[in-house]
């Protein structure tokens, strides 16, 4: 791991990886979509609407996973003071927010099919909504701090505390919905799911994961480039103005 922690090495490595990752992502999306839309059976209970699962569930999985990733990277940055970990955490946030929005939109459309209403205060959907607020909080803080050196310190803290908060949110929302007992039709995905549905689901999950990695590397590269450009501009100023160099 530490080999790639050097920003320059990371930049060169990701330069090579991005095209490969991009093509694999496209491949996985193509095969996954073919399976999800044409080559998988309709559910015996939900009929064709079960196809909503193949985008909703991967997006929902990754919405939590990306936050865990952000918090892990923040922890790494906090302990070992590594700037690259900060960049990875910060650039993952927008992707996480987009995935969470996808999970919410598809979940709400699925809800229309299953419950007949676009929004029901179901435990799963509600905790995804609160997770979206968590992402928005992170992005708002990032936005308001601009690129001050203190920004990454504060963002680390928010990501770490946010991670601790996720199980509390899940638990409390679960408790709250059993208090009012709405119907729950998006059933929990146990091991009992049939192979013919599991294959497209896993393919789509892999595609979502690869897409996340591709975008993350691209965004982190952009940040590294911007940092380099600023450093160069500073150097130029010093050359123009000798009094600053001394």
């Amino acid at each position: 791991m530490t080999r790639f922690a050097n920003p320059k090495k990371f930049y060169n490595l990701s330069q090579k990886l991005i095209p490969i990752l991009g093509i694999t992502t496209l491949l996985f999306f193509a095969i996954g979509l073919y399976f999800a839309l044409f080559h998988s059976p309709a559910d015996y209970q939900q009929g064709e609407s079960v196809r909503m699962m193949y985008i909703h569930v991967p997006a929902a999985w990754f919405s939590t996973l990306i936050f865990v990733f952000m918090a892990t990277m923040s922890g790494v940055a906090f302990v070992w003071r590594h700037p690259l970990a900060d960049l990875l955490a910060q650039e993952a946030a927008l992707i996480g927010a987009i995935y969470t929005s996808i999970a919410l939109i598809t979940g709400s459309l699925w809800g229309k099919l299953a419950w007949g209403a676009y929004w029901v205060w179901d435990a799963r959907l509600t905790s995804v909504l609160i997770l979206l607020f968590l992402y928005i909080a992170y992005l708002a803080l990032k936005q308001s701090m601009q690129d001050k050196p203190i920004a990454s310190k504060m963002l680390r803290l928010l990501a770490l505390i946010g991670l601790l908060n996720i199980p509390i949110i899940k638990g409390s929302v679960q408790w709250w919905t059993t208090l009012h007992q709405p119907p729950s039709i998006i059933r929990s995905l146990g091991i009992s799911i049939h192979m013919s549905m599991l294959i497209p689901l896993l393919l789509m999950a892999a595609a979502f994961g690869l897409f996340f990695l591709t975008i993350l590397l691209m965004r982190t590269q952009t940040r590294l480039l911007n940092i380099k450009t600023i450093a160069l501009l500073k150097k130029q100023d010093q050359l123009d103005d000798p009094s600053l160099a001394a």
Partner: peptide
């Protein structure tokens, strides 16, 4: 069903390509 399903898939991929495009442009 088909309308809602295609709406879901469309919105998903519009968001994803939007993100890809924005990231690419910035880079």
């Amino acid at each position: 069903h088909p309308l809602l399903l295609s709406l879901a898939y469309a919105s998903c991929f519009i968001l994803l390509t939007g993100l890809l495009f924005k990231t690419y442009k910035k880079r």
